[in-house]
């Protein structure tokens, strides 16, 4: 499916339909058929130059907000209060890592980063495990009403989390896990499941039946079949799902705002509490926001392909 450069669909058994056409540079320059010679060629070249210039400007424009945050995070509080981050270009001496040192010495912030990890990792693993169990059942096990159950899961794909905020907070309150990490993890897992099941079921269903049959003839039970054949073949789909879910939970603020322990909130909530006094604490907010972005950006650059297919597929959530 979609990615920036290569467009190889992840699926077991290779992808004969991989389309090199998605590589922009791989296509031959388009034929110019204009007979009127130099003038037309010049005009075309000018147009193409204008287009390039436009794209460069757009790219700079798109980068500017992030660069602004980064440079702001590298300036002292008094510099931030008195002038804009672009002053750095004429006065590079302003740059300092002071804010980051303060931030890392701030227990509330480092604690919230730990909370984020403690929420994100289990919520991702649980979705993968529970989702692949269910996906396997829907793809390869025979039971009454299978298609109906699956339709129900598909229906739940687009349910907004907002619908569940109040009821689940009551429910968690009754069970005693309101404002705990466990509650946040369970909530994210539940709302990650429809997409996970949908994605994995469709992927598992592509596994050649002969492989499964062969394993069964060798006497493998369902569990063994699942762990030894299906899961390894499902690697690419599991990777896309894992990356999507990881980023979804890592970046979440709303669910954590309601369900997380107020004493150890994840980084998004910790920063959100700071936003109320915006203006006086850019020296905390800017580096904080940048630190919270680091992991997602690393994931983004390291796993572009899985990232894009995951985000593309899960965008409605």
């Amino acid at each position: 499916m979609t990615s920036f450069a290569s467009d190889k669909a992840d699926r077991p058994g290779g992808d004969p339909a991989a389309r090199p056409a998605a590589e922009p540079s791989a296509r031959p320059a388009r034929a110019r058929t204009s007979p009127s010679g130099t003038a037309a060629r010049l005009a075309a070249r000018a147009a193409s130059g204008g287009m390039r210039l436009f794209l460069v400007l757009v790219a700079l424009f798109w980068l500017m907000p992030t660069v602004g945050l980064l440079l702001s995070s590298l300036r002292s509080p008094s510099d931030i209060a008195s002038s804009g981050w672009w002053q750095v270009f004429t006065a590079p001496a302003q740059l300092t890592t002071e804010n980051y040192r303060d931030l890392l010495a701030n227990d509330a912030i480092t604690g919230s980063l730990v909370s984020t990890v403690l929420i994100t990792v289990p919520a991702t693993l649980l979705v993968i495990v529970i989702g692949s169990f269910a996906g396997y059942a829907f793809a390869w096990l025979d039971f009454p009403g299978r298609d109906w159950w699956f339709l129900l899961v598909v229906a739940l794909l687009v349910v907004p989390v907002q619908v569940a905020l109040v009821p689940v907070s009551k429910l968690f309150g009754a069970v005693g896990i309101f404002e705990t990490t466990l509650g946040v993890v369970l909530f994210h897992t539940a709302f990650g499941l429809p997409f996970a099941i949908f994605l994995l079921r469709n992927f598992f269903a592509e596994i050649p039946r002969e492989l499964l049959e062969a394993a069964r003839l060798d006497g493998a039970g369902e569990i063994r079949l699942f762990t030894r054949v299906v899961l390894p073949l499902g690697g690419p789909a599991v990777a896309s799902l894992g990356i999507f879910q990881f980023l979804w939970v890592w970046n979440d603020m709303l669910v954590a705002l309601i369900f997380a322990d107020a004493q150890s909130p994840p980084i998004t909530v910790a920063l959100q509490q700071q936003v109320r006094q915006f203006g006086n604490n850019v020296d905390v907010l800017a580096p904080g926001a940048f630190v919270s972005m680091l992991i997602p950006l690393l994931v983004f650059f390291a796993f572009q392909r899985q990232f894009v297919s995951g985000v593309m597929a899960g965008a409605v959530k």
Partner: peptide, 17 residues
């Protein structure tokens, strides 16, 4: 595409600035 990777919170702070 890069902004898709970051949280809405971080984007919010970026645009507050």
């Amino acid at each position: 595409f890069m902004p898709m990777a970051i949280s809405m919170l971080a984007a919010g702070i970026i645009f507050r600035l």
